[in-house]
Nucleic acid binder design. Sequence first.
DNA 1: CTTCTTATGTTGACAATGGTAACATAAGAA
DNA 2: TTCTTATGTTACCATTGTCAACATAAGAAG
Lengths: 197, 197
Amino acid sequence: MIKKYTEKQKKQQTHGDLANSLIEIAVEHISESKSTEFALRELASKLGVSHAAAYRHFKNKHALLETIALRGYQKMNIFFLERLEISKDPLGDMARAYIQFALSNPGYYRVMFAVDFGKELNTDLHSACQGSFNALLEIMGKKNKINACKSIYTWSVVHGLVMLILDGQINTALNEFSLELDDLENQIIKITRNILK
Amino acid sequence: MIKKYTEKQKKQQTHGDLANSLIEIAVEHISESKSTEFALRELASKLGVSHAAAYRHFKNKHALLETIALRGYQKMNIFFLERLEISKDPLGDMARAYIQFALSNPGYYRVMFAVDFGKELNTDLHSACQGSFNALLEIMGKKNKINACKSIYTWSVVHGLVMLILDGQINTALNEFSLELDDLENQIIKITRNILK
DNA sequence: CTTCTTATGTTGACAATGGTAACATAAGAA
DNA sequence: TTCTTATGTTACCATTGTCAACATAAGAAG
C-alpha cells in the first residue's frame, strides 16, 4: 500500500527556512513565557509543519537551544562592538550596552544563561561566551588578577540586574519608590564607574 | 473483582513523611543537575513510592516547586538574621551571607529564582521574597530612592555573581587568573562595601 | 472493641511530548 | 532524464504529568 500526499501536503513539502523559523518562534515564545521550556511540537504546529520536521534541522531539542544561545552571543558581541568602537566611556557604555541588549532580547538572553555549559563542551558556545567576557576584560586595562576581579564584578552587576528585572523580582521595589528603569540603570552605571576607580 | 495488596505493598502504604522527602530529593536533584527540571515519577520511584503518591501532598508539580521556593526564602531569611544580629559590618556581612547561602544551597536558590512570580500571585512567596529585600534595604539606612537604588545594586551584584558561579560561566576566567572563590568573594565584598561611603 | 472518617497510599488510564523509523516528494547534480 | 540528497510526512514508542477509582492505615467517635 503506497501512501499518497494530498495537494496541500505537496505544497507544504518545503517550508523555505524552517531552521530559522524555529529559532525565531522559539525565541519569541521564551521571551513571552519567561521560561526556556517549550514544546517543540507546539512550535512546529504553529509553523504549519509536522512535529517531526524539526528533527531534520536539529538533532534534538537541546541542540536548538544551543543554536539559539550561540546566535545570542554572536548578536551580543556585535552589539558591543558597535557601541564601543568610538566611546569616551568604555566601561559605562559597555554596561549600558549589556543591559540594553539583555532587556531588548530577553528570549536570547535567557537561553544564553540557561544552556548548561558543563555538559558537553560545545566549543563554539564556549568561545562565543568567552568573547563577551574578554571584551570586558580589555576595557579594564592590563590583564591581571585585580582587573579580572573587577571584570567579574562588573559582569555580576549587570547580569544580576538584568536577571532580577527579567524575572520580575524587583517590580515591587521599583513601584514602591517610583523608580523608573532608566533612572535605575543610570544610577547603577554611575555607582559601578565610581567603584572601579 | 476486588483488588488485594501484597504484604510488601501494605507495609509501604505509609511512607512517613513523603512531602518532606519529596522536597529533599527534588532539591538534591536540582542541585546536582543544575536545572529545575525533573521527573516527578522518577523522584517518587527513588523514594520507593508509586508515581501518583506525590499528588496527595502537592496539587501538581508547580506546587512542589513553590513550596521549595518558599522554604528557600525562609531558610535564607533565618540565615541572614543569625549573621546580622551582631555585626559591625552589616552590608559586608549581608553580602557574604547571601553568597554563602546561595552557594551552599544551590538547589533551593535555583528554585527561588526559577519559579515565575508573575503567574498567580502566591502571597506567601511574595512576602518571603520581599522580606529578604527589606533586610537589605534597612541596612542602607533611610528608605528613599537613592538607598533603594543602592539596595537593588547590591542585590544585583551578589545575585549575579552567584548565578554566574552556579551556572559555571566564570570557571574559565577563574582558572585563567588562578583566582580562588574565596579571594573573589572578598574582593567583591570589599568593592561593594564602598558603595555606602 | 467496633465503626466511621480521613489521610495516604495503589493501579490504571489518558493526553501531551520528545524522539525514531519508514516513507514520499522536491530540487538540484550528474 | 536519472540519481542523490534535503526536507517534508505519518506511524509508532517510551516517558511524563495528571486524574479517577480503589485500598488500606490510623485515629476519632460511639
